[in-house]
Design a protein around this nucleic acid. Structure first.
Lengths: 253, 253
DNA sequence: GCTTTACATTGACGTTACGTCAACGTTTAT
DNA sequence: ATAAACGTTGACGTAACGTCAATGTAAAGC
């Protein structure tokens, strides 16, 4: 079949200007021009335009498309397979966006909590990998994927009200811990109260409680600088004091 | 939380230039600027940027986005629901593209046939509706949706080789029919051979054969100008002659 | 305290992929 | 024969930033 500009444009769902532009930049030249200068496109050009539109759909700029399809090593079937892969990836990206918008709706309704980071997660999946490499990997290696995932999941699904409660309780832990620290006795009443509050506070993040895990976490507070820095912020030695109190509270070690 | 340009940019996966541009066009102004002229963004701006990116993702231009989100009647939750709908539609479009690329691969491998129109179908779903109104409706009304759909489906799934066979057989039908026409006898040997070839030819388009349908089609060849024009191309009266021969062949009417 | 490095600012010009005229010739339909 | 529809080549306009340049500010290391 042969087509004039407008016929092909209509067929492909583009404007004739687009075809003229593609001719201009040498991306898609007509099979021939007739006596009066009209552009005439043949079956080869039809297929090529289809390829171009696939690439365009994937956000590839025209200059790159040109280089790709004019390359001597260009294999159209292989290119189509790659298109397929890319489209599947694009669909996954869309799924993420859909999940994100649904989550945002729930958050706006106050039914769950959403961190600033989560708000943009779906928009930049490629950056997520980088962040995962930067921050996610080490902590996961140290304390296990499952624990971190579960904890994150639980936080994600907390309501705004629950999150505020947890935050308040967390502050109370710090306050009582500070008071207890002044007594110097991790087995004393105040220190044990702090340990108990800490257990309650954990309830907001862990789906089930065990003394072993609680004691393990207490040790982690001392070993990991990030946690240590948090608990030592008012007074150095607080992380160790909390650990000792929790060890006594749980009867471990 | 408060963010500087680069911090927010990193969070949202955009460049700082983008944020400066959004400030410039009044789409997203920072919460405040500090003493040294730095842009500082607060939680409200974070959420607004998220909304903006959702709209941008859907291909809405920034001027329109501005009008939408600054409108007094703007309801963010409702907007999010609309985003969701649009994204679902976008996913359907992607599904169509994926189906299209898979089909194109099969066609390139010579396993099925693909019309030029089909090659671009997925790229322009909105135009398809229009085409359907223009050409699809009338013929469907006349001969029934199902018949047309089934026939189209079968043609779509034909291999290149099958398509060529069908075309060749179609030409033979015309040739024998022309010879038979010269005898003037629709009940004669040649005319009946033409009717039989026509039945075989139909096998390429219909998924099952019936004498009634065959006779009905023969009548349609006379009634519909498009078919009549095709069979009358060599000699006028051919469509009627074929109908008569098929009526005798099928023993109908 | 000094310096390096990273990050901030405001212009201002460049780029991509066309849209949108204008001015003019060609083909098709009536 | 004439209008309507379609073709041509300029040429300028545009949206959404990218990419310098020139310059001021904050944080970190020594």
């Amino acid at each position: 079949m042969e087509y004039t500009v407008q016929q092909l444009a209509k067929l492909a769902g583009v404007t004739s200007r687009t075809l003229r532009y593609y001719d201009e930049i040498g991306l898609l030249k007509p099979a021939r021009v007739n006596a009066s200068g009209y552009r005439i496109y043949g079956p080869k050009e039809v297929d090529q335009l289809q390829q171009i539109l696939f690439y365009r759909e994937l956000g590839v700029d025209l200059e790159t498309i040109k280089q790709i399809i004019t390359s001597p090593s260009f294999d159209d079937v292989q290119a189509l397979r790659q298109h397929r892969e890319k489209l599947l990836a694009e669909r996954r990206r869309l799924e993420a966006l859909i999940a994100n918008v649904e989550k945002t709706i729930l958050a706006k309704e106050g039914r769950i909590m959403m961190s600033d980071k989560e708000k943009f997660e779906a928009f930049k999946q490629q950056l997520i990998d980088e962040n995962e490499r930067k921050y996610g990997k080490e902590i996961r290696e140290k304390y296990g994927d499952e624990q971190v995932n579960k904890s994150n999941e639980k936080v994600k699904n907390m309501t705004q009200a629950q999150y505020e409660e947890a935050t308040k309780l967390g502050e109370e832990v710090l306050r009582v811990l500070h008071e207890a620290f002044l007594t110097g006795d991790p087995a004393g009443e105040l220190a044990q109260k702090a340990a108990d509050l800490h257990r309650q506070w954990l309830g907001y993040f862990w789906d089930h409680y065990s003394k072993e895990a609680h004691a393990g976490l207490a040790q982690m507070y001392v070993d990991d600088e990030r946690f240590k820095a948090y608990y030592d912020q008012k007074q150095s030695g607080m992380a160790e004091f909390l650990r000792d109190a929790i060890f006594i509270y749980t009867g471990k070690k």
